[in-house]
Amino acid sequence: MRAQVINMFLGIWLMSSPAILGLEGTPASNAHIVGPVVASFALISWWEATRVVRLYNLPLGAWLVLAPWVLGYTASAAIANDMVIGILIMGLSLVKGKIDNTYGGGWRAVWHTNTPHANAARLQQDYTDKNREE
């Protein structure tokens, strides 16, 4: 979770960086758009059941690394800001962190068969049936 806390603050930094670094035009808009999205994805992935959402920040981090060249930034502060923050976001979004609770197999278990929740339910059912017979 710590990595996603940092990523949230990196997103908030992006939101505020145009004002702090004095960026204008396209780099400012890019930071104003990407920042809140990164912060939101990071915040949602604080919780274990939605930890997977951290990966949505991978393409956003990659975009930040590419944006100065795709959008043709000229201010070196803007180029450095987007590239450094982008690399940090990508690295941190790969950190899964500890998962303490069990979730019956998670989201993929909603579609797949032979999942932890289905098996646990079967055991519970068998146990109940046996008790009823006795």
Binding site: A49, G104, G106, W107, V110, W111, T115, H117, A118, A121
Partner: peptide
């Protein structure tokens, strides 16, 4: 998630 897993069962 718990509800969706229940619906799957």
């Amino acid at each position: 998630l718990a509800s969706l897993q229940y619906m799957k069962r």
